[in-house]
Each structure stands twice: as structure tokens, then as C-alpha cells.
Design a protein around this nucleic acid. Sequence first.
DNA 1: AGCCAGGGTCTGC
DNA 2: GCAGACCATGGC
Length: 273
Amino acid sequence: MQYCQKGNDVILKDAKCFDVALSLDCGQAFRWHEASDGVWHGVAFSTPLTLSRHGDEIIFYDTTIKDFEAIWFDYFDLGRNYEPICDRFGQDENLRCAVEKYYGIRILKQEPWEALCSFIISQNNNIPRIKGIIERLCQGFGDDLGNGDFSFPSAKRLSVLAVDDLAPLRAGFRAKYIIDAARKVTDLQVDLKKICNEDIDSARADLKQIKGVGDKVAECTLLYGFNRVEAFPVDVWVRRIMQTMYPQGLPPCTAGVEGIAQQYLFHYIRNKK
DNA sequence: AGCCAGGGTCTGC
DNA sequence: GCAGACCATGGC
């Protein structure tokens, strides 16, 4: 991946297997929206960003090489070559169709705390409402970054709140889970930095100490917050996929990158007819 | 009105 | 270890 500064923007040249809209709106992140046709805006790592594709290039507006390298390169998983992975998925008929239709989905590497908190909110919930709750969480407790943008509130900020303080979110029974997570992350009972370097089973067990974090939320946190692409979240949609398409288990071509396969299949099945 | 949503906890066996 | 009730909220 080649990139350069051009005026106030950073240009990513010859961007392969990177569909901005698909990657930002396939149910893995909840804070991006299409500001105008093909132009996406959101906030990650307390930093607002607008981006869009023009031909073979992706333009990261009003940013610097410094921020691009410090934040966006990893956020968009640009160090990983998705082409051979997608090629290999072609060995399986269902995955071949999913990749053909939705080529360019990348697994975002979000802030671990944001991913954890977001997928706690996601439980027994639907994507539009998840987005609404997270938006109210950020507007209510995040830092005002100007221009209508807010940071995702830190665990520390939320750790001092009472459950009732989250009532305006209308998160329902999930509010107490958010507070429990914020407190355990803040006092390092669940150490997100340590989890970065742990084997995946220890990481799963650590995360599941938090109330409201079971298999699914732990798996999503590891996949979308830690870039553990071998993590495989199973929600109601993926459960249907496994029952109907893979009763014997996932095909060998997904080995080691099950989470990427999961994202293609999830988006494929959700948008089918 | 009833069912579902990127689930998890708690109780009872 | 497993089944079932229950959990808040909102869209369809």
C-alpha cells in the first residue's frame, strides 16, 4: 500500500480489496455514516475522519501522514493483504459467492474498549438501535471534538457513573453491563493492554469476567478490537449459516482467518433477498 | 399483537 | 451440562 500527502489530504494509492462503504457499514462498527454520496465520516481513537474512494485511490481528507500512520493504517488493517485470503475463500462455494458480491470488506481494528462496549450494547439488539444507543453514549459522555463529533467515552469516564446515569441511552438491561465493564477495565481487573499479548483462550476468559460478556461478545471484541482474525463470533445469523451451509463445520480454506470469513458470510446472508 | 434483534444471566434440574 | 424464563427497547 502506497500513500502520500497531497495538500491537506492523504492519498492511498492503488487501494486493493478495500471497499470503504462495505467495511464501514457491515455491522462491525457503529459510528460511521455516509455524509454524502460515497463520502464517509466518523470518529475513531478520538479523531474525526472523512474518506472516500476515487478510482484506484482512497482519499483521507484533512489529515496527515502522521495520523495516517499512527491511526488509520492499522484501523483499516492496511498491513494485511486480503487478496490471497479472498482467493483462498474461492475454494468454498458459499464463500466464493459472498466474496464475489462483497469484495473489499476489511476487518477494522477498533479501540479495544470501544469494541467491547459496543458489542455489550449489541446483545439481543438490532443494528439501527445499537447505533442510536452508542451515539447517545458518545454525545452524553464523550469529549466534544467540534463540528458535531464526539469521542467514544473512556472506560475511566464511565466507571464513575451510576447505572441510572445511563438511563438517557435507553440501553435497557445492558446499562449495568456497561458500568461493570467500565469499572473492571479501569481498575485493570480486565487489563485490555495485557489481552493484546495473550493467547486467545486466556483473552476470552479475561473478557468473560465482565457481566454481560459471553462467548459472542468476547469473540466480537477480539475480532474487531484486537484484530484477532481467528476469532469467530456466532450470532443468530451466523448460526443459521452454520446450520444450513456448514453442518460439518467451516471449510479448511478459512483456517486462521475464520473471523474474516465470518464477516463476509454475515453480510452476505443478511443482505440476501 | 407478537416476533425479532450481531446474547447473557440466573435458576432449576 | 442443559433448558427455559427473563431481561428493556423499538421496528415491523
